[in-house]
Design a protein around this nucleic acid. Structure first.
Lengths: 98, 98
DNA sequence: TCCCATAGTTCGGAATATCGGAACTATTGA
DNA sequence: TCAATAGTTCCGATATTCCGAACTATGGGA
């Protein structure tokens, strides 16, 4: 879990929005529930790529549940390792309304 | 001054190190003083590019002083707009020793 | 069992960004 | 005016990103 990977993952507003969504409500979302960011539909190959980047950065964990993939936020683990990082980043995005 | 630009700028460990260096001691450094990161020499065209990315992200301000360029950290301005962001990021890098 | 529908992943090629050497520009001092 | 120093710009090689199309995996019927 490296800081540069986390920053890179969240330096894309679309990925930051996806991560916010996964972290926010209930902390579990299937990819198909994330297929919209704002009013914008994300092509599923792009979404798959974004999810992969978030996963490889250690920000989320994915497990198959039947036919769908559930994405869990790893917020608390990341926060334990890098205190305040996630909060500051999502806070900054929230301030500019993304 | 957008969060994604700041995160992108600092998602490169070399740039993060340059920014740490500029922010750290005395808050002013000419590019030539930054030409080393760790034991690694940075080509000056690359350094110029890195400095530009940091400048455009709003992280530093550059002004010519005679023949050299001085780089000032804008830490406090960034912190005013996005509280805790810089500290959390540099703190995370410090934790892994970069 | 076989087939279909749903959910994601992988492939491939076009567009874009990054890196660094070489050439260029700007400023100072002799 | 010329030389030296400090950065910038240009450009080609390399690497990333984006997304449609094809592919894989799982579960639910007929």
């Amino acid at each position: 879990m490296r800081p540069e990977a986390i920053l890179h993952a969240l330096s894309d507003p679309v990925r930051a929005a996806i991560f916010t969504q996964i972290s926010g409500q209930g902390c579990v979302q299937a990819c198909s529930e994330v297929a919209m960011v704002g009013d914008r539909a994300i092509p599923k190959s792009s979404l798959s790529h974004h999810i992969k980047v978030l996963r490889e950065a250690g920000l989320i964990r994915c497990e198959r549940h039947g036919v769908e993939m559930r994405n869990h936020s790893r917020c608390s683990e990341v926060d334990q390792r890098f205190p305040g990082l996630i909060a500051a980043i999502l806070g900054a995005y929230a301030l500019v309304g993304v």
